[in-house]
Simulated scan of single mutants.
Amino acid sequence: MLNDENIIESLLVDNFTPEVSVLINHELETILNQYSTTDRAIILAKEYYGYQYTEISELLNMPVSTLKSRVFRMRKSIIQRRQSNES
């Protein structure tokens, strides 16, 4: 089972077969499309592009504390959705 802190990073690492990668990417895309545009931008900037909280804060004019809590909630939600899809 994947660690909560590293789930998205682990999923984006290219150590899967092409077929599994396609399925995971589709699953992540489906999950991310359920978020608002702002939330998608936040999670992608943080987890995929590697921006720091302070950089995202400046770009979106949002307090760092708000960003951290939103990222935490989204990570938890993504984990729960993936686990329910696996059952």
Rank of each mutant, 00 (worst) to 15 (best):
P63E: 12
N61K: 12
S87G: 09
R70A: 00
N25Y: 08
N15D: 11
D39F: 05
I8P: 03
Q52C: 01
Q83N: 11
K68L: 01
H26T: 11
V71Q: 05
A45G: 14
R81I: 08
R73M: 06
R75N: 13
L44F: 02
S69Y: 06
E47D: 10
S87Y: 10
F16H: 12
I79G: 05
I78E: 01
I24P: 02
R82C: 13
Y35C: 03
L67P: 02
S10K: 07
A45V: 02
I7Q: 02
T54W: 07
R40W: 04
T38D: 07
F16C: 09
H26I: 09
H26R: 15
D14G: 04
N15R: 11
P63L: 07
L32E: 04
S21M: 05
Y48M: 13
L11F: 07
L60Q: 02
H26P: 00
A45S: 15
L28H: 05
Y49T: 08
V22D: 08
E5G: 02
V71P: 01
M1R: 10
I79H: 10
R40I: 02
P63W: 03
E55C: 02
N61L: 14
V20M: 10
K76W: 00
I42N: 03
T54A: 11
S10V: 03
E19T: 10
E55S: 12
S21A: 15
S69R: 14
Q34G: 15
I56T: 05
D39H: 14
K76Y: 03
N85F: 07
S57V: 03
T38V: 14
L60E: 03
D39K: 13
F16Y: 13
E5R: 15
I43Y: 03
